[in-house]
């Protein structure tokens, strides 16, 4: 049986209850190929049952909802299976399983969560703000995982006086800080009028990037390992290298 759900926490918990005793259950939040004669069901979020499941799980492991939040942000193909296996194990053992790294389910979940957290860390560095004419900052990003709102606290703490928008162009949503509050909003395309100096600062940055390199020690493979090509699209210093 394939259990389709919409990728939210509530519908995941509802689906978990439905699929828990079904040993051959497959959880999916994306489109999936049905096998011959295979049954499928679409699980609608049921707030009452979801809350019951959450309370029960929190009793076993007070920190497990943070894990779930990160798992559901993952862009990995197998994240639904990973999350299902992980929470099944918590329910079966009735205790935190985080440290049982020799369990397949835990190793997979830890890996998945780590990837999401690592991408958040990377984007603390790789986000590139453009200064708009009004002084607000705008940064388009296209991360592998759904992390744009997780980036906000970091930038809010260091740029408290600048309103900014971090726009996930892949998922068409934006995390906004208006100088006081932060919120998530759907955003398809943004037209930004840039400030007069923006072009000149970008040119200086490109000049700096070129000057600080030591050409006689070229190690392109290492550079691409640390800063994968898929992230270059919105980084001014790499515009020239993308063809």
């Amino acid at each position: 049986m394939i259990y389709f759900y919409d990728g939210t926490k509530q519908s995941f918990l509802t689906a978990l209850l439905a699929a828990y005793s079904d040993g051959e259950a497959v959880l999916s939040s994306r489109s999936a190929q049905l096998g011959l004669g295979e049954q499928s069901v679409f699980v609608h979020a049921d707030p009452v049952r979801a809350e019951k499941a959450e309370k029960r799980l929190l009793r076993y492991d007070p920190k497990c909802m943070e894990d779930l939040d990160l798992l559901l942000r993952s862009g990995a193909d197998d994240r639904d299976k990973v999350a299902l296996d992980y929470f099944r194990l918590i329910a079966a053992r009735k205790c935190p399983v985080r440290a049982m790294l020799a369990e397949d389910a835990v190793a997979a979940a830890e890996d998945c969560i780590r990837r999401v957290q690592f991408e958040v860390h990377r984007f603390h560095g790789f986000v590139r703000f453009l200064e708009s004419a009004s002084g607000a900052l705008y940064a388009p990003i296209a991360p592998d995982n759904d992390i744009c709102d997780l980036l906000v606290p970091h930038f809010r703490a260091r740029l408290p006086r600048f309103p900014f928008v971090i726009h996930d162009v892949k998922r068409k949503r934006a995390a906004v800080y208006d100088g006081e509050h932060t919120f998530l909003a759907p955003l398809d395309r943004a037209e930004v009028a840039l400030s007069a100096d923006e072009g000149a600062w970008q040119a200086l940055w490109k000049k700096y990037y070129k000057s600080v390199n030591i050409p006689s020690r070229e190690r392109l493979k290492q550079m691409r390992g640390y800063m994968p090509v898929r992230y270059w699209k919105f980084m001014p210093e790499k515009f020239g290298d993308l063809c």
């Binding site: 860390h121 560095g125 990037y209 600080v212 050409p215 020690r217 190690r219 550079m223 640390y226």
Partner: peptide, 16 residues
């Protein structure tokens, strides 16, 4: 600005 105890890399040059 503020400090970031873990440190943070913002870009990488072709020398790695």
């Amino acid at each position: 600005g503020n400090g970031y105890a873990a440190g943070c890399c913002h870009s990488f040059t072709p020398d790695g």
